[in-house]
Structures are given as C-alpha cells and as structure tokens.
Design a protein around this nucleic acid. Structure first.
Lengths: 235, 235
DNA sequence: AGGGAAAAGTAATTTATATCAATTTTTTAA
DNA sequence: TTAAAAAATTGATATAAATTACTTTTCCCT
C-alpha cells in the first residue's frame, strides 16, 4: 500500500529534489559547466560542520546523512538525504560555514558543483531563486516538526515514525504488499531517533514481536507499515 | 558583562531583523504601501498553524512566540522572536500554510504587510531575495542546534541555555553588571525547554540556590550569566 | 481593596530512558 | 577460509524526568 493519504510524509522530507528538476536548460547548463562526479564509499564525508563551503553537492544515487557532532564525538542526525537531493547550499547562502556535516550512508554517486557556478546561476535565474526560497521555507517546517517530535514524544513513537520515513527512502522497485528493506546501523538509527543504541535494539525487538517488522542481521524489513503509522500517532 | 566572546548567541537567534534593515528606499516603500500597525495584548494570536497566509508581520516592539500545538493541546515553542524581527514569510515562500502559530508574549506593536506587496517587492528586489535566502539558511542552522540540544542535553543544561538566550532578548537599557529581568510564564519556559512545568520550577530553585539568579513572582533576574554559560556547556 | 481565578511552587511517586557489563552475531580483511 | 574486529543484542541497574496531588502565592477584575 502507498503511504499517501495515510501518513503526512511531506512533514518529514525536504524537497530539495525539486530545486533542479526541469530547471530551464540555460540555467541548468550554466550550473553544470564544471560539475564533477565521484563515487563515494559508505561512510565517506562530503563536508564537515564548521568548514567554509567550496560548492554544493548533488546525490546522483545514494543516501547521505546530515549530522552534527558535539565535543565528545556524539552524533546527532538532522536529516537523511536521498537520491536526487541537493546538499551544502545552506552554507553558501548564509555566507558562513557548513552548519552540519554530511557523510554517505551507503556507496553513493555524488556530483560536485563549485560555489562560483552556483552563485553565478543564482544571480541570473529567478526560478532557481524562487525554488531555493521555497525549499528552505519547507525545510523550516520539517525541522520544526523534528523539534516537536524530540521534545514531546517517547522513544517508541519516535522510532516508529523514523522507520516509516526511512521506509519511503529505502523503497526501490517497490511492489504493493512487499516488505521494504532498510539497511542502517543501529548507531545511526539511534542518532536519528535521539536515544541510545540499546534502546533502539530493545524497541525493535518489541516491534518484531508485535509483527510490524522482521530483521536479518542489521537489515530491517518493514512488513506492516500501517501498524507503525498507528503507533507513531503523528498527524 | 557582554555575552560576546563568551557565548555563541548567533547559534540560537534568527537574524530576520537584517531582512528589512537599510533595505533600499524604493523597495522598502513598496513593501510598506499598505502596511497597518496594531497593538496586540499579551497572549493574542497573530496567525495559526495550518492557516493559509495573508501576509507577513513585523514586530515594531514586543516579543512573539512561534510554536506548534499537538492534538492534545500541548505547545512546543520553536522560537522567541523579538523587536525588529519579521514573521510569517515561511508560509508565503513555501506556497503552503503557516508551519507554526505565533502569539505575543507581552503587549506588542505589530505591523502587517499584505502578501501581495511582499511578493511584488520580492519579484523586483534582488537584495530582498538575497537577504531572505541568507536568513532562511541561518535559521536552518539555529533549528539544527535546537534539535541537538533537545535530543542530547539534560533539562538542567537546556534550561541554562534558554535562560542565557532569553536574557539577551529581555535586555533593555542594560548596564554592565546589572541583573536582567526575564518575564515569562513557567509554562512557556517549560515549552521552550521541552520539559514539564514542575521540572522548570525545580531547576530554577536549584539555580537560585547556586546563585545564578533571583526570582520575584514570575520574574526571573539573571545575576550571574557566566555561571549559566559554564553550566549550559554549549560550544 | 478584596475575592476569586490562575499561576507558581513543593513533595512523593512512578515511569521512561540511560548507562554499565557482558555475550553473541556479523562483517571485514588478511 | 578464518581470525580479528566491529556491530548487535541482552540483561541488570542507576538516573532523569514525568506525573499526580496538593499548597501557596500572585494577579486580575469588579
């Protein structure tokens, strides 16, 4: 079953795909003049919080976590970006530094676009301008939702919700009724949910017993997303 | 003592003041053609989450909380906006609805600018465009910081941090060495910190005993912000 | 100014979550 | 292929925070 109509997925996803989709050819070409494409292995870092930006990144294929690291090395995942999404524009637009770090969650193909080309295209394209304003404003609402989630919901509900969102991102060649395979480390899942790894494992075991999912090694197979939606209880 | 150099206040404040400051006269006038100014009493609502936007708001004088309300009526404060800040542009730029509600925390003078004037000025002013992009990107980093704070820090540290931030907002005619008076309800403070009112009261009592602040009725007087900064421990 | 309502404060208790300590399983790389 | 390392899992315990129940104080409003 599709999630449309029974879960407000837009509340939890950025829409940075829509920044480049069907951009006027002239703008698109100018943006891509000096783009370079690279394959990054799982766990490789695109950019680090605090660094000055040199360009933006486009996920041709793969998944990237955006996260912050505190003094003690503890990570907080802010967002999981998927194929088609754009990264790194916040730092350039704010004229400051990267507010977070970005690292691949799986082997990914990443295109790099130099800062100069991005800024030049931005100067000349009101469409790109408008799309960035629209995307950034939408991101505001997504992060506001995350704040409310973390401040007010217990771990069980937060984990249920993040599994629903991850399931959408991990869908490939999805067929009605099939289980979706989510391949993510327990540490990353814990960091996304805002709890300790052990709690994630415990609640996953409960969800298994309650028939919403199965696991095989680190892989999680979501078999009953409707039950998760009821549990997540997030309008 | 000033907080500059010993606390990274920019990590926790939006910079929407800078959107209108010294905007070219032509742009500014166009924006203000149909503006109307109103005095709102404490607790009055500017706009509600989920409503379609009719314009933007400028805080001529006063303080406004941005918050989300869940099904049960529980509030989560996302941000406290101060004199000079702009509100309500996210909904218009995202071409959707207000992502949060806004209500005054004290009697405030609020200017309303109709959506049409805002959009028209935006079309014609690349400076306004750039400033909005810059502000929205910075807001992203502020909300990412809030997420990390809520997910990883205990109530004591969160409260210490929010008191430091509120102190900056409540400074008026501040003289070196003076205590700053923060006038906010315990419920709002709890909602900002992401905890129950009772916990706020308890920790405030501890802070009083430890000499960082005094209270008089609902008013909180921050007398030793340096101690709070040490406690908040937030690079 | 006084009475009533709302807000603030206190204490005891329960519950959720974090932490600590191990063991088992999976993955990686020689 | 297998040994070593890394990751996942389990259980016990400690700690932080939420909840409940109540008292006291403050602040409006007539």
């Amino acid at each position: 079953m599709s999630i449309q109509g029974i879960f407000p997925i837009d509340k939890w996803n950025f829409k940075s795909e829509s920044i480049l989709t069907d951009l006027p050819a002239a703008d698109f070409e100018q943006l891509m003049v000096h783009k370079s494409e690279h394959v990054l292995k799982k766990g490789e870092i695109l950019f680090r919080e605090g660094a000055y930006p040199s360009g933006i990144y486009y996920i041709v294929e793969g998944k990237v976590k955006k996260y912050k690291t505190d003094k003690t090395g503890r990570e907080q995942i802010i967002y999981v970006a998927n194929t088609g999404e754009l990264l790194g524009y916040h730092a350039i637009l704010s004229q400051y530094r990267y507010p977070d770090s970005a690292a691949t969650l799986e082997e990914s193909r990443i295109a790099f676009i130099p800062k100069e080309d991005f800024l030049l295209t931005l100067q000349q394209s009101s469409i790109l301008n408008n799309r960035l304003l629209k995307t950034l404003s939408h991101e505001f609402s997504v992060l506001a939702n995350s704040i409310t989630l973390l401040a007010q919901k217990p771990v069980r509900e937060r984990l249920a919700l993040q599994l629903i969102v991850l399931r959408e991102k991990y869908k490939v060649n999805f067929e009605e009724g099939e289980a979706v395979e989510i391949n993510i480390s327990r540490d990353d899942l814990a960091s996304l949910v805002g709890t300790a790894r052990e709690n994630v494992v415990r609640v996953l075991t409960e969800f298994k017993e309650e028939g919403m999912l199965k696991t095989k090694g680190r892989k999680i197979f979501i078999s009953d997303v409707k039950k998760l939606i009821v549990l997540a209880n997030a309008g």
